[in-house]
Design a binder for these strands. Sequence first.
DNA 1: ACTTGACCTGGAGTCCACTCCAGGTGGGAT
DNA 2: ATCCCACCTGGAGTGGACTCCAGGTCAAGT
Lengths: 125, 125
Amino acid sequence: MSSYTPAETAEKSGFSIDTLRYYEKIGLLPGIARNAAGRRVFSDGDLGWLTMLRCLRETGMPLAEMRRYSLLVQAGAETVQERLDLLQDHDRRVEERIARLREQQDQVRMKIGFYTDALCESLPV
Amino acid sequence: MSSYTPAETAEKSGFSIDTLRYYEKIGLLPGIARNAAGRRVFSDGDLGWLTMLRCLRETGMPLAEMRRYSLLVQAGAETVQERLDLLQDHDRRVEERIARLREQQDQVRMKIGFYTDALCESLPV
DNA sequence: ACTTGACCTGGAGTCCACTCCAGGTGGGAT
DNA sequence: ATCCCACCTGGAGTGGACTCCAGGTCAAGT
């Protein structure tokens, strides 16, 4: 049960301090504590939430949908089904994304093969 | 050896007409022919190039790098090695991307598992 | 002769996700 | 006492990739 300054949190979470402030402002980080001087104090729970946000964001979820998820979490236990639906939809999109990336990677590799051949042919014999 | 209007090209390539114009403007589509009235006339070759661009784009290559690739292609045969390097770098990035997506998908699925369990536990017995 | 519709141009506007800035505060080190 | 530094706020600015708009042209249909 530790607490962290904005700088530490930025370092641990991989988000910049500006991004942390921005996320709080748009409602992605509810309930961040403040000390007597008005400065943010992040908890281990906040760190965990940030890890989740990072995961969603890097898998391509837009901030608007992350905000929706955040609101559902805040709304309490009766939103569990909705959260589940949201995450399952997201999981499906990630799956499609990966499949599509693989196909396109194959295309790129065909092109690479083509250029490799071109280079070989042009070698002096 | 057919030729296509902007509308047909948009339909076949999946880029909007505005995007086609934009790509031509920033140098991604060199040598697009025009008819007597000044309208664009796309060839099968252009279509093929657009397919390549789409592939690079959807695998996350920024327009600036696509432009660099485009310039290399225009510069002729002595840039084949550079093109190869560029595509191989890109391929590596795509590979990393896919691996990372898989890891993060696992995280999402753990969360889904957690919520599924939560729902099961809360079922009336 | 006239309208329609697909196209043209240059340039402005939009959206997303930050990122930066000016001006201000409070606490600890020298 | 003073200085520094990490932090605060509201709001403006940025970068990437489009997307839209006003005003104009041409060819074909009625």
